[in-house]
Design a protein around this nucleic acid. Sequence first.
DNA 1: CTGAAAGCGCTTACAG
DNA 2: CTGAAAGCGCTTACAG
Lengths: 343, 343
Amino acid sequence: MTRPTISDVARAAGVSKGAVSYALNGRPGVSEATRRRILAAADALGFHADRAARALAGAPAKTVGLTLYRPARTLGVEPFFMELISGLEAELSLRSYALLLHMVADREQETAVYRRWGHDHAVDGVLVCDVLDDDPRLPVLRELGLPAVVIGPFPAGGRVSSVWSDDAVSLQEAVEYLVALGHRRIGRVAGIPDLAHTRIRCAAFANLARKLRLECAPTEYTDYTGPDGARATRLLLGAADPPTALVYDNDIMAVAGLAVAQEMGLTVPGDLSVVAWDDSPVCRIVHPALTALTRDIAAYGRQAAQLLLASLDGREATGVSVEAAHLTPRASTAGPANARPPA
Amino acid sequence: MTRPTISDVARAAGVSKGAVSYALNGRPGVSEATRRRILAAADALGFHADRAARALAGAPAKTVGLTLYRPARTLGVEPFFMELISGLEAELSLRSYALLLHMVADREQETAVYRRWGHDHAVDGVLVCDVLDDDPRLPVLRELGLPAVVIGPFPAGGRVSSVWSDDAVSLQEAVEYLVALGHRRIGRVAGIPDLAHTRIRCAAFANLARKLRLECAPTEYTDYTGPDGARATRLLLGAADPPTALVYDNDIMAVAGLAVAQEMGLTVPGDLSVVAWDDSPVCRIVHPALTALTRDIAAYGRQAAQLLLASLDGREATGVSVEAAHLTPRASTAGPANARPPA
DNA sequence: CTGAAAGCGCTTACAG
DNA sequence: CTGAAAGCGCTTACAG
């Protein structure tokens, strides 16, 4: 009743262990006929190579690693990551790869985990999220020789594959839409300032503000949580000449901002237009439903997994840009109630 | 620059490989003095035992497995699981255990994954979610000899540890509160009917309806998604004598239900009171904020991990019941607008 | 209390 | 094209 080993298969097929290994791994060294006989025997016995043994012998562990950086006080994880993981898993499962997940509370832990993985035969490669400009993890991964794919903007150093879309295009779509509705004062509730994609969005926003001659274009940074989004909203709306539209860097904060506006007695979209970046179910569920920058997050995950798997197969790819997020207009945006005519 | 092996440590400490292994694993067979010398040498070299090698030699892999059953069309994962995973990880990291995550699209896949894990030296034990009455996975796990902890109500068969709280108590708290406010017609938007904890909640609800002589107490089942919660809400509110209060089996559906009610022209809580089971940030964020059955989901995760780790250490525990969810009243509940006086 | 040896289940040069 | 052998880095009886 114990599990069949490669020796059992070899005996059943009347060949040596080595031949079985070659046959199973699709290597040259066995004739087509014996290969078929071996595969049939393996199948009949329900043989699956032991991962630990494979890994120890230097073969791929068929496992990829993902660390998630969550400061201790942040409970749970954003919808973004859940969808991302769904997408990753969908692709990895197809190829019989496992996902090793590790949450860390600080950045040093994260590189420590990479080092352990790299030395441990634990994972064949890693997926890297929440990239910083000049991210300290990337040199560590290179030093370890651990294949990696970045889920985020293509990192400055180059040399590592990445999957991301053009956030500048998406932001432009949202802001031009708001301007077309008559908004001239547009605020942004941004995420964590260190993150590379936050920087990209900020630069794009500054450009747009200049190009479109916005009256004001304030940005407030947050840690992506609902409460912090609420705080930022209060701050922006409390200004002397407050924005008439707010673009949020995630859905959770947009929902929080919506509630804040309503508490302050503002109607949405009458007094304030709200746009969410990322379109999780909650955007459709609140009232009014939120205009959102919609993208297929699970697709990022699938693409990232494909890219990593490709590089594990020795097929290098340097970067893939996926479809940018596009605007899905809903009930939370409209022209400002007392819009002044364009100057 | 390659990683130190146990032989390096042995050489550095001037002992045999076996002695190092004993010292590192806290086994008898080395004197206290040599143990210390060995540990110091290991530390100095930054030695960590290779997981694959350990696993292959029959020692614990220091990894636990979690499968998540997600039908293909369900994108993403509920907030519940994210918080649960946070809690699991918090505990596992402390003990240097890794979490192997695997999403599956159907139940057969799930047992197949268990079988692979069981034979593969991949995990030392598993965490089981979404338990059914008479769950087919439990016999498989027993057959495999894979230690398991159920996150959910204590399963009928016994023999396996479980972590859960008394949902009947929580539901009673919510329903009695609504009755005290004057509600006599209370509906329930329930989760997936097969799940053991859904059954428990339904039984408790039926009991309460009888005991408190509710005028009506309809239940509508869902798949936990926002859209399905919206559908259930429409159905329940469309009845001849619709409920004046609705209790939802998760937060996502409660938020969706809130939006449906508002679309139907009902005010919350004036015309309809809404209670959510589980209290994620989104409950506080929507307007009005949702009255919720609050529980510490991450604590479930921590407890479950502790229990599994204990059973891996040979310390058996049969079940732990954690603090029940308690009601957090917020703005979404009030007396019914046109409540009839109690009969 | 310690050392030398076998073995976990694979993979991979290396001879035939 | 195939077989016998070494080795991956550990753990664990087993002699000393």
